[in-house]
Amino acid sequence: MIEDRKFICASCTIGCELRVTLNSGEIVRVAGNACPRGETYARSEIKDPRRLFASTVRVTGGRLPVCPIRTKTPAPKEKIFDIAKEVAKLKIKAPVKIGQVLIHNVCGTDVDIVASRDLASA
């Protein structure tokens, strides 16, 4: 089955419109890229698209009611909403240290959720 996918290359600010042709899920052609990095991007975007994810978690006893968190490394794109739900359940106590690991291996992705700021107790 031949399938065409279109997306923007995010490897540099030019943002070429990539057109990828797939045959039964295998890449047969990448077009629209102005340089070789576009092809690399297209391949990773098809095979294993990943994104950094950020949100906040509830904090008790802190200067702010929430603390920002992020995935330490990019997580699989299709797991982002699962991760969002997992993070939404979390409640932590102040003080919070920047970089503190809040969830190990979130949703089985091998990716950690870390606090992205210091938050002192109120």
Binding site: A54, R70, S116
Partner: peptide, 19 residues
């Protein structure tokens, strides 16, 4: 600005605003 995307030029990694 809690989404990573800052400091790519200075630190070669994508930091959130607070980081």
């Amino acid at each position: 600005c809690i989404d990573p995307g800052f400091g790519l030029r200075t630190f070669r990694e994508e930091l959130s605003g607070p980081e």
